[in-house]
């Protein structure tokens, strides 16, 4: 029964990683860049929700929506101001800029909200369900997290497969030049991708802090790196890959903490990543495409 408890916490943590990993993977797929500031957008989302709910007494759902709006705008702004001018620049320059944006967001948060940890109120309360005479407990946060992840995945899959904007995104991720020849506005598509990824980051931030309630300006960076790892693990650029990578990473991390060692859990996670990449360099679901003549 403890095994089942661990599995469920692993899936729950993994769901959060998966939602964050989606932002990395979509942006990578379309803009071909690693947006290392993505983790910090999570933190901004969590702070916005925190202030909306604890200081301005908004209902939790309104807090989440507000956080999503702010993060969506923030993501588009970061893209417009920091990344768009570098569209033709070498990828190393873009990477360094992304790291710069990450520090900028963290330090702005430090200035605005100080380094004092905030105790994040869970947006779904602290209730839990007990089963098998209390041997198996599932908190409401866990249920909402897993449900959110499933809904987001289904919605995104439908979006990329069936809508005009979604198809434009897929076209841009394959070949921007050819996409422009079709009449697709590549800049608008990239901006939209940042908007979606950042809106999802806000949701991830709220869920993360509902499960682990200490909120500081660096809250986003470790989950950000883990989720980036999850995206690579599953195959960067692939939406189902982000889900699979996120879930596996979450489960491996919780099991490593439970059965091996709390201190070594991250080392185990990254060791598994290295092994997977040695066997499948494009990640679990990453595609390697060969051109035909």
């Amino acid at each position: 029964m403890t095994f089942l408890n661990f599995l469920i916490s692993g899936i729950s943590l993994g769901s959060i990683y998966a939602i964050i990993a989606l932002g990395y993977t979509m942006v990578y797929g379309i803009a071909k860049m690693l947006n290392f500031a993505h983790g910090d957008v999570i933190m901004v989302g969590a702070y916005i929700c925190f202030y909306a709910v604890s200081r301005f007494s908004l209902p939790p759902l309104a807090g989440v929506v507000l956080a999503m709006l702010v993060c969506t705008v923030l993501g588009m702004l970061v893209e417009r101001l920091a990344y768009k001018p570098l569209r033709a620049a070498p990828s190393l320059a873009v990477l360094i800029t992304a790291i710069g944006v990450s520090y900028f967001l963290q330090n702005t948060a430090l200035l605005l909200w100080s380094s004092n940890p905030k105790v994040f109120p869970s947006v779904v309360g602290n209730g839990k369900i007990e089963m098998f005479g209390g041997q198996l407990t599932i908190s409401h946060v866990t249920i909402v997290t897993i449900a959110a992840c499933v809904i987001i995945m289904l919605a995104l899959t439908w979006f990329t497969g069936n809508t005009r904007m979604g198809k434009a995104m897929r076209a841009c991720s394959e070949d921007k030049g050819a996409a422009q020849l079709m009449g697709i506005n590549v800049n608008a598509t990239i901006s939209m991708t940042f908007a979606i990824g950042s809106g999802l980051a806000a949701i991830a931030g709220v869920l993360l802090c509902s499960a682990y309630p200490t909120l500081v300006p660096t809250t986003g960076s470790m989950p950000g790196i883990k989720a980036f790892t999850a995206a690579v693990f599953g195959g960067i650029g692939s939406i189902p890959g982000a889900l699979l990578g996120g879930l596996l990473l979450g489960v491996i991390e919780i099991f490593a903490k439970a059965y091996i060692s709390t201190q070594l859990s991250d080392a185990v996670v990254f060791a598994v990543l290295i092994v997977v990449l040695l066997v499948k360099p494009a990640g679990l679901l990453g595609k390697q495409i060969h051109e035909k003549v």
């Binding site: 198809k167 897929r170 394959e174 050819a178 020849l181 495409i289």
Partner: peptide
């Protein structure tokens, strides 16, 4: 029709 076709291979 660009050189090398450049169709969307995954679609």
């Amino acid at each position: 029709v660009p050189e090398g076709r450049r169709i969307f291979l995954q679609m």
